[in-house]
């Protein structure tokens, strides 16, 4: 355990700044997003075709019923289960809920989850080796590509993440109460590469 982790209360979020190896460029950059609206979208029974059509019509999104990200410039749908998506957009939570309600009507159940997760982008030259210590999913570029998503167990914590680009960068949705523990696990895993925690995390 590095110094910071032995002194930091387990309930605190890792503070912004450099953690682990301090020399050279950071191997991993963690960037919390505080202004992202998030909602779950669950299709009613037999309504996946209808939801897919509506998504295309309202958002221009070709919705995949799979662990994939379907997105346009201002909204993303991340498959988390059959007929089930996490929707993210850079706007107010109420505004996203209103747009989704307009688009899907009673064909789907919607719930605001904007406060439910710590949304965290991870990237940097050592992001691959660092995530190999945390994520039990094969992230090799031949297997997991931009637009792929996975709900899985990281350091005993359930969470969802998806790949944003082939730099590579990943976006993690970490249940809010697990965020301190996740960041501790991240700090341990990234210690050898150096972690730059961009702040502030608690929005």
């Amino acid at each position: 355990m590095s110094e910071i982790l032995s002194d930091l209360p387990v309930t605190d979020l890792l503070p912004p700044g450099r953690h682990g190896r301090a020399d050279g460029a950071p191997g991993v950059i963690a960037h919390p997003l505080s202004r992202l609206a998030v909602a779950t979208l669950v299709a009613c029974k037999g309504a996946v075709p209808r939801i897919t059509e509506a998504a295309l019509a309202a958002f221009g999104v070709a919705l995949a019923d799979a662990p994939k990200v379907s997105f346009t410039a201002d909204i993303a749908f991340i498959g988390t289960g059959p007929g089930r998506w996490l929707v993210t957009a850079s706007q107010a939570p109420e505004a996203l809920m209103a747009r989704l309600t307009d688009a899907f009507g009673d064909g789907a159940a919607l719930t605001d989850q904007s406060d439910a997760n710590l949304m965290l982008d991870l990237y940097g030259p050592a992001v691959g080796e660092t995530l190999a210590k945390l994520v039990p999913v094969d992230l090799d570029p031949s297997v997991f590509r931009p637009g792929d998503a996975a709900a899985t167990l990281v350091a005993l914590m359930p969470l969802t993440f998806w790949q944003l680009n082939d730099s590579p960068a990943y976006r993690f949705a970490i249940p809010r109460s697990f965020a301190p523990a996740f960041l501790r696990a991240l700090a341990s895993a990234a210690a050898s590469a150096g972690l730059e925690m961009a702040g502030p995390a608690r929005g």
């Binding site: 355990m1 982790l5 209360p9 387990v10 309930t11 301190p180 341990s188 895993a189």
Partner: peptide
């Protein structure tokens, strides 16, 4: 065990008012 030892044996989940209560 890896990093799951001591304080990190398992995750600790704070409530939304944890810092206030502290």
């Amino acid at each position: 065990a890896g990093h799951h030892r001591g304080k990190d044996f398992r995750a600790t989940r704070p409530t939304p008012t944890h810092d206030w209560a502290r």
